[in-house]
Amino acid sequence: MKTYWLKLALVIFVATAAILFTQSVPAQSAPKEKIAIVVSTLNNPWFVVLGETAKARALELGYDATIFDSQNDTAKEAANFENLIASGCKAIIFNPTDANGSIANVQKAKAAGIPVFCIDREINSTNAATAQMLSDSYSGCVKLGEYFVEEVGETGKYVELLGIVGDNNTWNRSKGFHSVVDRYPGLKMVAQQSAEFDRAKGLEVLESILQKNPDINAVFCGNDAMAMGAYQALVAAGKDKQVKVFGFDGADDVVKLIAEGKIAATGMQFPKKMARQAAEFADKYLHGKRDFPQKIPVAVELVTQENVGKYGDYGRKH
């Protein structure tokens, strides 16, 4: 009988020790898979939101996520791709710097078996990226063009600030806008110049244009950073009340200025929605899904002083 109790005590001791031991030694978790987010530039708050949202969603989904800044330079972008391919990255969320120049980088990743999901900006290839989630810039600027005619009227002088000339978004926005405005012969474009999607350049370029063209009625800008720069130039020249500024992006500072009646309109691009969806696509790919549509347009909505209350924080308010 005594032996029986001794054996039972021994079994309980061993079982308890085993449980305590397994609990006290932390489980050796497998290293997290890496997702890279390569962004054209972090020198613009809109792209910071795009990159940070993709990163946050990837982290939520259990990945190790890192943002790489290409500084609007295809060489820097290529170096980023080389590094992250070598580092064993499993998927890339990619905001390209150049529709043609960035194709080779995507092809390198594809050759290394790494899926690439383009966001916001496209590459001119349908067989390199796994999927491309792109703002429908053309349609957005058609809406802006129609609103521009309503606000400015069918006669007047205006300036267009273009983005980076190698980026398709620059031309999709410009062409969408001109597909409307050019149908009104009374609307004269007195200057069209690139300010490379940059706020400081937007300010500088419009200041220079205003020297020769002090009597303009409106400025159409290919993004909100340039619209902010243009607005600053107009304030400095004392012309902010007479010249209407139109932007594109849906950046928070511009949405606030629309609410204050200082900027006429912008196109809301929903960067957070695109970035989250891209991270989810990467996750689905890594769990076996392969049938992604190549191009997924994301609608752009017109934000004006009439409906600005519905928008904020880079999207629609819920």
């Binding site: 349908t126 349609s139 398709n168 999709n172 549509p293």
Partner: peptide, 22 residues
């Protein structure tokens, strides 16, 4: 007439078939 309503409304054209959105 402006915009993509006619192009996209019928469902007969697919954006993925065009490498360059321009």
């Amino acid at each position: 007439q402006f915009g993509n309503t006619v192009r996209d409304g019928t469902g007969l054209l697919d954006a993925s078939a065009f490498p360059n959105s321009q």
